[in-house]
């Protein structure tokens, strides 16, 4: 009996110290996340009046949302554009990063160098630099002239042939669009490559050996061993990619929210915009996470 109470005491003590350890998070979460979170939700239903004395909230119902969807000339278009761009970008980022991670996981000369290069975008495509580079016509014209100096570009010729054949032109356009933006995709997949790489390195080599002895080809073991073993990373990477895209500085909607907030001081309207966008993205993340988690395989 006394042993049991002792154990209980120990467990209680552990629980208390556990709470002490995560205390910074709890405090920060309550003060800097929950409070502003509900405040901005409330603000989106209000008219915010700012004066020297402080802030006044006047309840306005759905006015801000109506303004976003019905009155604002560009928001609907922006929203569909950005969501579509997000879907295309995220899918291609995931495929690209798996591909690169698989290649980087093989042994070859100069691997350390290539790895270092592939990690550079984490620095170069962060924060303010993305927005600056996206608007820099001088650099893009340089890239074009570099392309032109190699004679006729292979992709351009290929594009011409395929579009003139007129087969599924809408689909082809999307593909070409992705090919043309391969730099953006490469620069957005730094972290994803690392996450996939680390997953690849945890697969025990003995699995491949066993498969090899049983007569599996490399191609078969890619689909039967590698893919299931790293499938749990798909979910992580998918969510990370979407969120990363969400917060990029070259995102049109985010820019609109920012200008509404800082130049027009329309805190109510910008909150409403942010909430609409957030809700749309959350629905997307939720649905896709459900679908992906159905096919994820957990190896214990």
């Amino acid at each position: 009996m006394s042993k049991k109470t002792k154990q209980k005491n120990l467990a209680k003590k552990r629980a208390v110290s556990g709470y002490l350890f995560i205390l910074p998070f709890i405090l920060g979460f309550l003060f800097f996340m929950v409070k502003p979170f509900f405040q901005s939700l409330y603000m989106s239903f209000c008219t915010v009046d700012i004066s020297a004395q402080g802030v006044k909230y006047i309840f306005a119902g759905l006015d801000n949302y109506k303004r976003a969807f019905l009155i604002d000339p560009e928001f609907n278009q922006m929203l569909t554009d950005e969501v579509w761009r997000m879907v295309i970008n995220s899918i291609s980022t995931i495929i690209f990063s798996i591909f690169v991670a698989l290649m980087l996981n093989t042994q070859f000369k100069g691997r350390a160098f290539v790895r270092a290069v592939f990690f550079l975008p984490v620095i170069f495509s962060s924060g303010i630099i993305v927005g600056l580079d996206a608007n820099n016509a001088l650099l893009s014209s340089m890239a074009k002239s570099a392309e032109a100096s190699t004679g006729s570009s292979v992709t351009a010729v290929l594009e011409q042939i395929l579009t003139s054949a007129n087969v599924g032109s809408k689909f082809m356009d999307t593909i070409f669009d992705i090919v043309n933006r391969v730099y953006d995709i490469a620069s957005a997949s730094g972290i994803q490559i690392i996450i996939f790489l680390s997953a690849l390195q945890t697969i025990p080599q003995s699995m491949y050996e066993a498969a090899d002895i049983e007569g599996c080809t490399k191609w078969e073991s890619l689909w039967k061993i590698t893919m299931p073993m790293i499938s749990s990373m798909f979910l992580v990477n998918w969510i990370y990619t979407i969120v990363d895209f969400f917060t990029k500085t070259d995102n049109q909607i985010m820019n609109k929210i920012k200008t509404q907030m800082t130049t027009y001081m329309a805190y109510d309207f910008s909150s409403a915009l942010a909430w609409i966008y957030f809700a749309v993205v959350m629905v997307m993340v939720g649905v896709s996470a459900l679908i992906i988690s159905k096919v994820v395989y957990y190896y214990e």
Partner: peptide
């Protein structure tokens, strides 16, 4: 909640934080 913090973009709450 930690996962939530990863997923919620700071922009959503930025206007409230600004005033806060």
């Amino acid at each position: 909640c930690v996962i939530l913090v990863i997923v919620i973009p700071p922009q959503t709450i930025s206007s409230a934080l600004y005033l806060h």
